[in-house]
Amino acid sequence: MKPLFYIAAAVMIAVALALLLLPLLRHGRQAGRPHSLFVLMLGIALMIPVGAALLYWQVGTPAALNGVPQEVDVKKALDELRAHLAAQPNDIQGWLLLAQADMEMQQLQDARGAYGQILKLSPDNTSALVGWAQADSAASDDHHISDRARDLLERAIKLDPDNQRGLWLLGISDFQHGHFAEAAATWRKLQPLLQPGSNVAQAVAEQIALADARAGSAPASASSVATATDQGAQLHVQVALSPKLDAKLAKGDTLFVYARAPDGPPMPLAVARLSADQLKQAPASVTLTDAMSMVPSMKLSSVSRVVVGARVSHSGNAMAQSGDLEGDSGVIDVGSKAAVKVLIDKVHD
Rank of each mutant, 00 (worst) to 15 (best):
316 G>R: 03
13 I>T: 13
200 V>K: 04
178 G>R: 09
258 Y>H: 14
246 D>N: 15
166 G>T: 05
277 D>E: 12
161 P>W: 10
229 T>P: 01
121 L>K: 04
156 A>G: 01
291 A>K: 10
108 L>Y: 02
260 R>V: 14
284 A>G: 04
303 V>T: 02
258 Y>I: 13
324 D>E: 06
76 K>F: 04
322 S>G: 15
68 V>T: 12
272 A>L: 11
230 D>R: 14
268 P>W: 01
63 A>D: 06
226 A>W: 12
130 V>E: 03
318 A>S: 06
298 M>F: 05
26 R>V: 04
95 W>L: 00
113 G>Q: 09
285 S>D: 14
142 D>R: 13
302 S>W: 03
175 F>K: 11
10 A>I: 02
178 G>W: 07
341 K>D: 14
32 G>Y: 06
253 D>H: 05
46 L>K: 01
177 H>V: 01
125 N>P: 04
53 A>L: 03
94 G>F: 04
172 I>S: 03
236 H>C: 00
277 D>K: 13
182 E>W: 03
164 Q>G: 12
154 E>Q: 12
89 P>Q: 13
40 L>W: 09
280 K>R: 15
6 Y>M: 00
144 H>A: 13
92 I>N: 01
190 L>W: 09
236 H>S: 12
210 L>E: 02
340 V>L: 08
268 P>C: 08
177 H>C: 04
94 G>Q: 10
266 P>Q: 11
76 K>N: 07
190 L>K: 07
126 T>F: 01
171 G>T: 08
129 L>C: 11
100 Q>A: 15
337 K>T: 14
335 G>H: 13
61 T>Y: 06
239 V>S: 10
43 G>F: 07
232 G>H: 07
189 K>R: 15
176 Q>L: 09
140 S>A: 10
299 K>H: 11
194 L>E: 05
176 Q>S: 10
10 A>S: 14
271 V>P: 02
209 A>V: 12
24 L>W: 11
237 V>Y: 08
73 D>C: 06
241 L>S: 11
53 A>D: 03
99 A>H: 02
209 A>D: 06
170 L>R: 05
107 Q>R: 15
124 D>N: 14
235 L>R: 12
46 L>H: 00
210 L>S: 03
117 Q>C: 00
49 P>I: 12
28 G>Y: 13
166 G>N: 04
177 H>N: 05
338 A>E: 13
32 G>L: 08
265 P>I: 02
210 L>F: 02
237 V>L: 12
126 T>W: 07
348 H>R: 08
333 D>P: 08
130 V>N: 02
139 A>I: 01
337 K>G: 04
280 K>P: 07
41 M>Y: 11
104 E>T: 11
127 S>Q: 15
315 S>G: 01
349 D>Y: 15
145 I>H: 04
14 A>S: 15
22 L>H: 00
77 A>G: 10
154 E>D: 13
196 P>W: 14
206 E>V: 00
89 P>R: 12
75 K>I: 09
126 T>G: 02
175 F>Y: 13
109 Q>T: 10
79 D>H: 15
184 A>S: 14
89 P>I: 09
51 G>D: 01
219 P>E: 08
102 D>W: 03
320 A>E: 05
94 G>M: 06
72 V>N: 08
126 T>H: 04
65 L>G: 03
